[in-house]
Nucleic acid binder design. Structure first.
Lengths: 230, 230
DNA sequence: CAGGGTGATTAGACCCAGCTAATCTCTGGT
DNA sequence: ACCAGAGATTAGCTGGGTCTAATCACCCTG
């Protein structure tokens, strides 16, 4: 049997790494209000669609998701609890790797992808304690509390902000290492305040000013940076 | 496929957690000069003997072990390199968990058993650096260097020391949490110096003095404590 | 030398997790 | 109304890792 990763005294499905990955990804897509489909999951998880089909069947059998008639995928209470747990560990680990081990924010995602399945509850608590119970990870993603309410709010993307606004960066999607490095080099990290100059037409870049410097951000980049007009 | 844990550009076998566990255990038994047999491995790994048989076949096919006529199991150069790597990560993680996350020495073994398969080379180096390149883990086990010579020396067990000696604890086998807790409560940890009083006959306890206090150690315990007559 | 016992392996089964190729289903356009 | 195409699923395969039950091999004893 592929090693079970968490011993949870709740439902009849073994919580392998693959299962946890899938739950976290469903949670992530749903949190961004993106459609949760087989193909979207397959792409995110970098596996073929049939692999996801099989996994979803297991998750459904294990009462972790439901699929209504319109094949809409939703986490059950149980499923969401687990997904939040995995997400919590993922983000705690990311924070830990940056703050304690000095990795850079573009390196931590893939490490956390593995470690999130390997840390026990005890360790999760220790890490949380050592970090002083952080509320956000280095990308600005909120860390779900062990118990209690959690909202996965994504503020507006930089791409849609009118020219002339001041924009406060809250959150940067952590999917792409290259992008993160590029953005960090230009000072675009959570907490930074930008001036949005103008957007070139025909899918052109967005001009922003960070401090004294101006940068032309590709639309793809402008869409991963989220925050509030300040 | 059960997730491959390390991408190693060397041989034709996938380095899954089970493979790494097996290699580390062979290394451990060999290091203690114990016979490396299918049944010994099965016991250590807590799996059934046929599972080990199948694993050994794969390891042999992957050139990680050899089996001579007398079914003597030996690590190849490659195999030993990997085994040392896993052992290094295991012991680094144990040290890290104690020194940085404040776990106690009896808690870290099982955590490290999982984490050793989940940390990348980059992380291994960071941990090593943060700890200041430690040479021994909390149980006194030497941490194999990334490159270079390594000896897995086990000094004499306390059980065999003549009465009246002063005994300096170097190393305590980390297999049994209960035992570790018991010993630590009595001040018997690496670096401690004991006075060996006498041994009761008929498999009775060994009397030792730690500081001002006397303790009667069961033979089983006396055998996991290793060190030098001082 | 025969028998018994121990330790290792083989046989046969199961589950998870991945793949490709084929099929099914549904929706939209002409 | 039909057909094309997209997306999902099924079918069928591979392989790791686990188990139990049965068998094999070998050694020691009587």
């Amino acid at each position: 049997m592929p090693q079970t990763v968490q011993s949870s005294p709740c439902c009849e499905i073994s919580h392998t790494a693959a299962v946890e990955d899938c739950l976290r990804t469903i949670f992530k897509l749903a949190g961004r209000k993106l459609p949760v489909t087989t193909s979207a999951l397959a792409e995110q998880l970098r596996v073929a669609p049939p692999t996801v089909s099989a996994m979803l069947k297991r998750l459904e059998a294990g009462q972790l998701i439901t699929r209504s008639a319109g094949h809409e995928i939703r986490l059950t209470k149980h499923g969401e609890r687990h997904a939040r747990g995995v997400t919590r560990r993922h983000r705690l680990v990311e924070t830990f790797l940056v703050q304690v081990l000095g990795l850079s924010w573009d390196e931590v995602h893939e490490e956390a992808d593995v470690l999130e399945h390997a840390i026990s509850e005890r360790l999760e608590d220790r890490i949380d304690g050592v970090l002083g119970h952080p509320t956000h990870d280095p990308h600005g993603d909120p860390i779900p509390p062990r118990n209690g309410r959690h909202v996965e709010s994504w503020a507006a993307p930089l791409g849609g902000v009118p020219a002339g606004s001041r924009f406060r960066v809250e959150r940067v999607a952590d999917d792409d290492s290259e992008a993160l490095r590029y953005l960090a080099e230009r000072g675009i990290t959570p907490g930074a305040v930008l001036e949005v100059m103008n957007r070139e037409p025909f899918g052109g870049p967005v001009w922003v000013k960070v401090g004294a410097k101006r940068h032309a951000l590709a639309p793809m980049l402008a869409d991963v940076v989220h925050g509030q007009v300040a």
